[in-house]
Design a protein around this nucleic acid. Structure first.
Lengths: 205, 205
DNA sequence: ACCTGAACACCGTTCAAGT
DNA sequence: ACCTGAACACCGTTCAAGT
């Protein structure tokens, strides 16, 4: 039917780099960050494990790509949810933190790679660092938009942003490690709101 | 000289179980939690790596013993420092959180094992779980002692304790992963105090 | 240029054998 | 009862060879 006959079983994959990152995520969520193997990721894509080294310097580079992809997804989700919130500081803070927790509960293993053992110890992966910086930028910018001009001194916007991040991240970590025990993701969210409320009030004084 | 001749080079170690845990800690802090190998721990004690299996079911069991030892050390340190603090709620909270951060900065790799990949997924290591529970108990008890009877409703003591834990842990994690950048441990402490202050005020309203 | 096949060093785990 | 020596399966990494 097609004008030129398709080569069957080409040993060229097409976009193997991207395919490896995409294939890794479900394996990660299924078996945990500890269990993830370069070999099984390659096998899932239908390729020899040595082929991955044409596109990633080592396993850490693959994990960095997964983490970066996670940070970009998180930034999109946060931007979207925070934009929908009421335009005052407390509402912005709450919607940011809630969206953050929801992302972490949705994809715990990807979150674990994003915040697990340091991937960028030696400073390769500049784009990973950039994705993280973007996250903080979004947070600070949204707080600013949230009518903080009167309520809060300008120099404190970054501190407020980091406080919120610290609290949301700490909660996620303790829940995921079962140091704080909750029945399910819905309970995790409502209990988070309860714990988070004092911080919001303290920040707005 | 001695009444009975000492057997030289006995292949019995004495207290190998404990020795392995003790030997593991400096290796951990030197090479990171990722780099820790059962084989090098055994070698550091002067024993074949297979010998470890006489005392630990597997590597996870060794890590659990390290984590438990860390939690007990942390509990001792927190009790001591919090007991020295002024007897009001804010001072108790602050001294708890500061001692917590100091411990984590002192022994980052041990802290990483304590809060890293879940060790007790299948519920072995009851004593590990017990050591963690003790930590929360100490925290809640000290808050209670801090003259909270008037200022705070009784049911909220646990929530307050967990809030503090969440914040301190989140801060430590983000600093250790370089998501929050600080020059050294001293700066880490003073910046923590700055960020922590709003939470304390919010909790006492 | 991209992937395969085979090899290497290293790790956790097991087990028969030594003392 | 406690430890050694040797083996096994598995992993990350490398590299010559195929297309």
């Amino acid at each position: 039917m097609s004008p030129r006959p398709q080569k069957k079983l080409s040993y060229h994959h097409g976009d193997l780099k991207r395919a490896l990152v995409v294939a890794a995520v479900p394996l990660l969520e299924a078996n945990g960050a500890q269990g993830l193997t370069l070999r099984e990721v390659a096998a899932a894509v239908g390729v020899t494990h040595a082929a991955a080294y044409r596109h990633f310097e080592d396993k850490t580079a693959l994990l960095a790509a997964i983490a970066e992809s996670g940070f970009r997804d998180l930034a999109v989700r946060l931007s979207r949810d925070v934009a929908r919130a009421d335009n005052d500081a407390a509402a912005k803070m709450r919607s940011f933190a809630e969206a953050y927790v929801a992302f972490a509960m949705d994809r715990p293993a990807v979150y674990g790679v994003m915040f697990g053992p340091r991937l960028n110890e030696d400073g390769r992966f500049a784009s990973l660092e950039e994705a993280i910086t973007e996250l903080v930028t979004i947070l600070v910018a949204e707080i600013k938009k949230g009518q903080l001009e009167g309520a809060i001194r300008p120099g404190r916007k970054r501190d407020i942003g980091l406080s919120i991040w610290v609290f949301a991240h700490g909660y996620v970590e303790l829940v995921q490690r079962r140091r704080i025990k909750v029945k399910n993701a819905a309970v995790a969210q409502t209990y988070f709101d309860l714990l988070f409320d004092p911080l919001v009030r303290g920040l707005l004084v």
